[in-house]
Design a protein around this nucleic acid. Sequence first.
DNA 1: GTCCTTTCTCGAATCGATTCGACTAGCATC
DNA 2: GATGCTAGTCGAATCGATTCGAGAAAGGAC
Lengths: 374, 374
Amino acid sequence: MTVDQQRERPTLAAVARHAGVSASTASLAFNNSGPVSAATRERVLAAAAELGYAGPDPRARSLRRGRSGIIGAVLEETLSNAFRDPMNLLMLDGIADVTGPAGNSLLLLTETAAAGVHVPGPQKAGPHATGAPAAASPSSLIDAPVDAVVLFGCSTRVDEAVAIVRRRGIPVVAIEGRPMAGVLDVGLDNRVGSRILAQHLFDLGHRDVALVTLELDQGRLPGALTPSRIDAGTSFTAVERVRGVQEVYPGIGGYATLGSTIDEGIRAGHALLDDPATRPTAIIAQSDLLAAGVVRAAAELGLRVPDDLSVVGFDGVRVDDPLASDLTTMVQPAFEKGRAAGRGVLDLLAGGAPESVSFTSEFRRGSTTAPPRR
Amino acid sequence: MTVDQQRERPTLAAVARHAGVSASTASLAFNNSGPVSAATRERVLAAAAELGYAGPDPRARSLRRGRSGIIGAVLEETLSNAFRDPMNLLMLDGIADVTGPAGNSLLLLTETAAAGVHVPGPQKAGPHATGAPAAASPSSLIDAPVDAVVLFGCSTRVDEAVAIVRRRGIPVVAIEGRPMAGVLDVGLDNRVGSRILAQHLFDLGHRDVALVTLELDQGRLPGALTPSRIDAGTSFTAVERVRGVQEVYPGIGGYATLGSTIDEGIRAGHALLDDPATRPTAIIAQSDLLAAGVVRAAAELGLRVPDDLSVVGFDGVRVDDPLASDLTTMVQPAFEKGRAAGRGVLDLLAGGAPESVSFTSEFRRGSTTAPPRR
DNA sequence: GTCCTTTCTCGAATCGATTCGACTAGCATC
DNA sequence: GATGCTAGTCGAATCGATTCGAGAAAGGAC
């Protein structure tokens, strides 16, 4: 049992009393936010030290000020998955790069926590309840003390939560989200980029091409990519990238994965390549990580890239695997996207009305594409 | 100019008034925390919907409850660097895995923000100040509304901030930190693990061995590893790993990097290998990422691993580069460490007094070590 | 019909700070 | 010596909820 658990901590009021000044003056002394004589400030600080006062309570401060200095970053399902994708990390980093110096930190939130769970059954408020509060409902986007929110490729599942957050007057910035009213958009030319890649393969002569998608819809198992599955897709980015490819290969099929990881790419690669009879001559992966996995799978099957199989990715990640270190891909400015989102947040918080921005990815011809073999 | 910027948002009190009940009842209705008749609850919820009330303000709630549902994760210098290390990500994920279901989210903080910056000059509080608050002091560990804090291999720089946080009565858990009073420790056998690796090389016959360290001290340039530099090291983990190696190779030299990245490993590799005259027969890297970089550098110089050079790492990361995909290393349970830290946090928040835990890494013989060439 | 529970509702105190406007000296100016 | 200014200080209101204990109404037992 820790002893100091018992003794209650001093408040600003206590410090003020001990220093013989009013609470208002003590506050000014701590914040350097008004005219306070040097002598008084000294006295207040001394009193604080004597009482072991650790400074103003952030919770109270944020209530009064109406700002918590916290920006929520809403990522997909689980942190582990989100962290696996270098794009997310770059964007997070970009946001922090802009908002950090302005005094904000990032709160990691996941879509799971979007819809606040409410325990239905009422419970008696026993007068002698000594234990912890019976059921703390899972924290969520909805009851996090955030000043603003950045959505990372949000799916439809967050809609409700976003509506609530907006109703509260909290600025929302969406990175590659389906355009929503009142939400500042930071976009990417996913459709055009994907079309360019598809066109590249088409121009090389490929007619038998398969697509490996990012997570299209949450909660569904990976598997064959069908038109109905595409139409049911909830991930805006994934669907957009499909649409771009369809402009070149209208009836394209392929494989829908669980997300942007090398392992998923390997799995998809095997699903598409194991059977020589149905093997495509090229594969369009919706991310470089997936592409790297496909290349790996191809290698495991004894296929050479690009001789036996062409592979394109998306993102412009540097993958360590030398086989996939020079992918043909679209390079997207992820860090800059994050910075733009961060600027948007700051603008909105300052009461401005920033315009949505859209970034352009750039085609990079690597060594993983070539004409199909006859 | 957004219109709804003007209209002020409804409060719980307004909703209560509109529903014809008291604020207390409205609160109970929203929280299911007391006996409220179904009819009343309905009425309150309807009133809320009508007024566009988004639910209780998290800031006010956290002040009153004394809990914000936020756990601070204090990482090293910059997020980008921290994110680059898979160990950090795994540990973060482990923490979230435990604390998330309990209703907490993670706030990312960096050591930079440790010592709160105070703007010295007092400024006049003009009555007509319309703009933004003049100078928001950078947010920091100190004024973030966190319920608890987890330190990731903290260096000495955070000491002051940690002291303040502790004074506030906030539980602190340190992962691989220098043991501090009142801080729950989640440790790793860095010293023993490093000794095992060194012994492995020694047993193979290596006598000319160099060490590539993690960031030893913040703010210093990378460069030669000297005894004085080791003694001045502020990173507990890095120093411990050096000590373990010294138990086998007392006078070992090498190269101190800026952190656990492949690029740093490449740089260190070249620094140690470029000159054939001083080339060691084996290199001990303090992380797998560094080791992968060293292997790459060796390859660039035409050296074969393990024939011309043995390399060991630390961590047990899976590196994509096939050259380094089967490193001899110590595998550490990073995810489990994170989970343990999360459990510690929850225990401490619940008023318990958990014991420090220490994890053990496991030797894994890969294909990057062999006896030295004669 | 009285008394005792149970169920529901409310008023008031509280969480811990920030900030606005008012007030008091002290000083310089005419 | 009265007046006007400025720097320093303080009181009181406020941020928006939660929670405790008290009280009223409803229902049941005797």
